[in-house]
């Protein structure tokens, strides 16, 4: 099963609708064993629905899939014994302590009692949860809860792990901790199927990314391939007055189509590859013409740029953030 030639996850033509609403409009996926695959998409794209189908929680309306070598339609129990799911919403028992939650998982994974206790202690230690072992999850921070959730998923030593938005709602530090945990998991040879709303996260963790939008995969590739398709990197320059804007436009030889003037025409959007050399060139040119600049921000491609270029519309989630 760990043979790299056999895909850990493959799916063809997955479809799902609720009433008239088409949630998945035919999804094809292929995830080689031992790799990290990230499904990237905004709210409502169908990420959770895809995860729920592949993890046997809900049935697809059409399409076939196999996970860890087991067919979704004929051997769901085979899939269940090979996977672990950390869903988008907390799946811990809120009346049991951290430790009891892990014991529960050990029992349900049919581990012998001693082995189960050992596994629980090991995971508490590894996830820095020993202090929380005797506490109920209602007293946990969001990050601790998430870690316990993941620890519970790992009790059964799954070969394929589904993580549905594992870092949404976490602060930057907890997010980094979660990323480190995920990297460790990959190093141990498991396959990870990760959903996220953040390009950066997919970029950091994934071998391959698929972009999901309104139930369709609009692009697939390595992080670099995707970013290359995204012309979203740019500098944003603000000027004190309209005359400066005009002179800057001439100095930087921006074609009118490049000129994204907004904010009462006092800002310019200058495409860039984000390197220091490119940045210096822009500033040198403005300097040479003595154009005064109020402020400068560097904008690297994000999910919104990916979406804008792939689908022609912005994501709902980040609409307000991008003026």
């Amino acid at each position: 099963m760990t043979n790299a030639a056999i895909p850990a996850i493959s799916a063809t033509g997955l479809r799902k609708s609720y009433g008239d609403k088409v949630v998945l409009a035919g999804i094809d996926l292929n995830v080689p064993a031992g790799t990290v695959f990230s499904l990237l998409g905004p709210n409502g794209a169908g990420k959770t629905t895809t995860v729920n189908i592949l993890s046997t929680l809900i049935g697809p309306d059409a399409g076939t899939a196999s996970v860890a070598g087991h067919d979704l339609a004929t051997d769901p129990d085979g899939i269940r014994s090979a996977i672990g799911l950390t869903g988008q919403f907390s799946a811990v028992d809120s009346l049991l302590t951290g430790e009891e939650n892990l014991f529960l998982m050990a029992d349900l994974n049919h581990l012998p009692r001693r082995a189960g206790r050992r596994r629980a202690a090991e995971l508490l230690e590894r996830f820095d949860l020993t202090d929380a072992a005797k506490l109920v999850p209602s007293t946990f921070s969001g990050g601790m809860r998430r870690k316990l959730d993941l620890a519970m998923t790992l009790v059964g030593d799954p070969k394929v792990i589904f993580l549905d938005e594992p870092t949404t709602g976490l602060d930057p530090r907890s997010r980094r901790t979660m990323w480190d945990i995920i990297r460790d998991l990959v190093a141990s040879g498991v396959t990870i199927f990760l959903t996220t709303q953040y390009l950066e996260e997919a970029d950091q963790l994934a071998d391959r990314i698929a972009v999901l939008d309104e139930g369709r995969l609009v692009a697939q590739g390595t992080p670099d391939e995707l970013k290359r398709r995204v012309p979203g990197g740019h500098l944003r320059l603000r000027f004190p007055d309209a005359v400066s804007v005009q002179r800057a436009g001439v100095a930087l030889r921006l074609s009118t189509s490049d000129e994204h003037n907004d904010d009462e025409n006092l800002a310019l959007r200058v495409p860039t590859d984000g390197t220091v050399t490119a940045l210096r060139e822009v500033l040198d040119r403005l300097d040479a013409e003595s154009v005064a600049v109020d402020s400068l921000t560097v904008h690297t491609p994000d999910l919104d740029d990916v979406f804008l270029s792939l689908t022609g519309h912005r994501t709902g989630a980040t609409k307000e953030l991008v003026r």
């Binding site: 046997t56 929680l57 129990d77 269940r80 996977i83 799911l85 811990v92 349900l108 059964g156």
Partner: peptide, 10 residues
Amino acid sequence: GIIARFRTMA
């Protein structure tokens, strides 16, 4: 949420 977890276990 834990019921969903149970349902994905063998």
